[in-house]
Amino acid sequence: MSRRLREQRLCFATGPFKVRLGSDVDSFSATWQRSYASLDVLPAEEICHFRIAVERQRGARRWYRPQVVFRIEGLTPFDPYPLDHAFPMFEWGLNWCIAMSAHDYLMLHSAVVERDGCAVALPAQPGSGKSTLCAALVGRGWRLLSDEFGILRHADGSFLPLPRAAPLKNASIPLLQNFAPHLGFGPRYAKTRKGDVVHMFPPGDSLQRQADPARPRFIVFPRYEPDAVLQLHAQPPEVAMTRLVNNSFNYRVSGAQGFRSLCGLVRECESYQLINGDLSEAVAALESLLQERGR
């Protein structure tokens, strides 16, 4: 696989998208392979959506401060990262490519997990504890659809999976490693733009089921407040609609179709606001919500 990566011949699927990936950065290749060990590699002649390279920056700097660049179709849309941050750069860069291109879907900025055929969307702003809560649920056996993208298919209003490594930040890192030590975790990336980052690797089962969509059932807007008492409030659909319009990557680009799909989503789902100060309590609240009001 390392050879395929070096030769830009590694093709793989992530949810509905196919990627051709190349890299000459060995530490990146190693982390990528650990994270996506359960993925089936596609034949090299597969036609892919994105051709991506994660490569050492050439030039004099490489000797004293080596850097890595992210290329999509030979273009370099971002400034280089330090060489040892190649993996977070790849994850972030691929998300950017999807957010800028995949306008055939309505893309919510949301984690999505599923259990017993019920998908729960956790849409939220950065800092709300969305990734932490998502990773904790995955640690309890929920299926990871995505840590970042709620990809809604217009045709049938279902969520498509996009299981990827989920970045945990700062205080969340030890919290999750204690809460779910059996999950796979990547190396620690110190002092990124968002502080220290460790990725939770997507579980093998979530990767193997990445072609299976899930029916939306709950929309839960999480908000982490230190020491807060747990509160789970039902939210009227029109409030959920307003919040989702502002939380989507491409609601306006999606036009009338996006409007119809979003109306369908808030009608089909029950919406809640979840304020929590304790991860175990939040997980328990969602598990009993599923038990009582799931399908």
Partner: peptide
């Protein structure tokens, strides 16, 4: 396009 959403119309 008008769609009823809860107590409102989108």
């Amino acid at each position: 396009i008008l769609e009823e959403i809860g107590d409102c119309v989108a």
